[in-house]
Write a protein that binds this DNA or RNA. Structure first.
Lengths: 222, 222, 222, 222
DNA sequence: TATGAATGAGGTTTCATTCAT
DNA sequence: AATGAATGAAACCTCATTCAT
């Protein structure tokens, strides 16, 4: 029984940085996305995720019971709060549909085809979709369907203002979107060695679409 | 350097049917494609490949030293002798470029977007490309580049015959191809529950492209 | 790149006693030595090592990435902190070189020829040396070279004190050591059924060596 | 029904070189020894043995039911018809025992310590002995015991001729042999980088042994 | 006899998951 | 809340052995 106040060594380690759950969770999700994107679902090791997040091996399991849950959370977070809100919002703009089409396409190129993270996310979805059908379902309702509606609204707007002609495109307005997706996938596959010039591609795309949609002006171009 | 790996004495009789190497190899490749397509590279078990091929666990290793080699062989076989030969051949046909465009697009839809095997193969390439860069490289030279050239030839043919107008599309003629790819991917992702009507999609696509490319007729369509 | 390698849900409770790394590592090394010595490198199963150490199959891999690393660690631990320090220390003793020679030889017999563990270690080194050249190299510098120096010092001491005669033995003083090694190997090979009487062997050896080295006394023994 | 004598292509391959069993067996044993010596028993692949012998993978099993049988046959062939016959024969020579000792040691050095194949065989025996006790037993009776008898005969001869003194060496005459074995093992372990000068070693050994055994001449060397 | 495709047990290694600390 | 040692199922791969040809 000594009376001195103990000063120095304590058994417990230095108080670790203590973030609130949400922040910590976000860190893990970020790390997980990086790893999943780089290696795919099955080949990703939770230990690597943990290391990248700067936490101990066991911690991801604390936040996400199993690996699949983590994967779902990663994708869900990326699918939901999507750029598509922005695009939808932009549709209320005034002015010619031709201009709106250009603006919309430009926005989509920027958010999707030119955005590495978005492309990686798409890659994950394509790769792992069959094993996570709820995720594709989610993507369909959050992105797919809304994209269809966007292009439909644009085409319809053009027609009702007399700028565009009516035609079969109305049945599948998202055909318009095809070259964007193609650019994204081309970059995804061949980007490292045979990347596209996205600006030039954009112009080609826009030119094709506008000419394909617009009513020939009187007197014609000929 | 392994210890005695075997017991030697085996009980089962085993159907020791013997094929020539090429046939057996093809069987294994078929089985492997099926499994890889269903589960992805990492999640595919060689034992399942063997079972599906109707052979013993060790046989795939006899034909393909390691799993990666098998995967490479599977994809290579699908990439190289591709439908694209057919398409190229068809370009020499006579007649209007409009008709040729329709025929070509139809062919491509049939071979790619409407063909499950082709789609699965693309899924594998997208999913595993980063880990098998030689394969994407091969795909680029065997398919990507040739596709560009096909669309360029078509557009050029149309222009030189006075059917199509010149324009930015010449810089990226494969923009035309975008909706095909999109259809393929849409089916790949959402096909089970939200499949496209490919015929209708094809008509929309063709309409957009032809209107986008063709010179306005005198007097206009208006 | 493996598919999901695990089931996750496990039934067994498992005694999850936890030691500090060093202790646990030592347990594994001990178990590994036992198994390697009994069966040789290639024929040893890591699972047996684990079982002998009382841990799960995967734990040895946690401490030693691969089997070879474990093997190296096992041998290194046995080579380095060797009995040879003791022998070297003993050389500073006073008294006749004859007595010192007897004491030294006795020590060496005890540590090497009469010591099962030391013999097993030597067997491993002989057996696997070609595949682990760094280990033989280590053994050479830690044991071989120092042994040479020990015998040289002994012989030189004897000569400079007028006890021993000079002669060719100075070129290879470790010739003296030969019978020790022979005894060790004899025991190693034939010990079970035709073991040597090491005490008697020691006396024969000592007698030969002393008579071989000492200056004949005046008047001779005859 | 054609009448022509078929000339060219026959189904059967060119008649293979057909050696009599003994020769073929010897080839396999040679190849097997090479492989076993290089890698040890467990790490040796029968396929490599076959390849080295220039035969098909299955053939070794035709001559030697299992791998262990092959190994036994390899060692047995090397153990039995050993150099030791020669040495024994040489013991009947006339002349001084000193000379005979030199000649005998020289012979043993040449056959064992300086002979790579003999060393490799010893390595195999040391390495695999515990798993093939009949082989060590065989080696003991064919080599071990006879070696003891050789050295005993030599020492006895020296004593009975008044050249050598009696002493404890008579209990373990093979102590004399120790440095030979040591040289062999030293070469086996360290030969590649720190090989002994065997001639010099031999002289040191012989000098020690003769001085250790011989009666001091009257008047002494002192 | 001889070949080499085919089999399948078993070894090493990986890694999701658990849980004592 | 957090750590990281420990577990053990399962995947890849090896290779002795068999046997149709």
């Amino acid at each position: 029984m000594r009376g001195e106040a103990t000063t120095g060594v304590r058994g417990s380690p230095a108080p670790r940085r203590r973030l609130d759950r949400a922040k910590r969770e976000a860190e893990i999700l970020d790390a997980a996305f990086y790893e999943f994107a780089a290696k795919g679902y099955a080949a990703t090791r939770l230990e690597d995720v943990a290391r990248r997040a700067g936490v101990a091996k066991g911690l991801p399991h604390f936040y996400f019971e199993r690996k699949e849950d983590l994967f779902r959370a990663v994708l869900r977070r990326l699918i939901v709060p999507t750029w598509i809100d922005l695009v939808e919002a932009s549709l209320t703009a005034e002015g010619s549909t031709r201009d709106l089409m250009r603006a919309t396409l430009a926005m989509v190129y920027e958010r999707l085809a030119a955005n590495k993270k978005a492309r990686e996310m798409m890659r994950l979805l394509i790769a792992e979709g069959p094993r996570f059908p709820e995720l594709t379902e989610l993507y369909h309702s959050e992105v797919g369907e809304r994209a269809v509606s966007i292009w439909r609204r644009l085409v319809t707007r053009g027609i009702s203002r007399g700028e565009f002609r009516a035609g079969p495109i109305l049945n599948n307005p998202h055909v318009i979107y095809g070259p964007v997706l193609m650019a994204a996938i081309w970059q995804m596959l061949f980007g490292r060695r045979h990347g596209l010039d996205l600006d030039s591609w954009f112009e080609s795309h826009l030119d094709l679409v506008l000419n394909g949609l617009e009513r020939p002006k009187r007197g014609g171009r000929g």
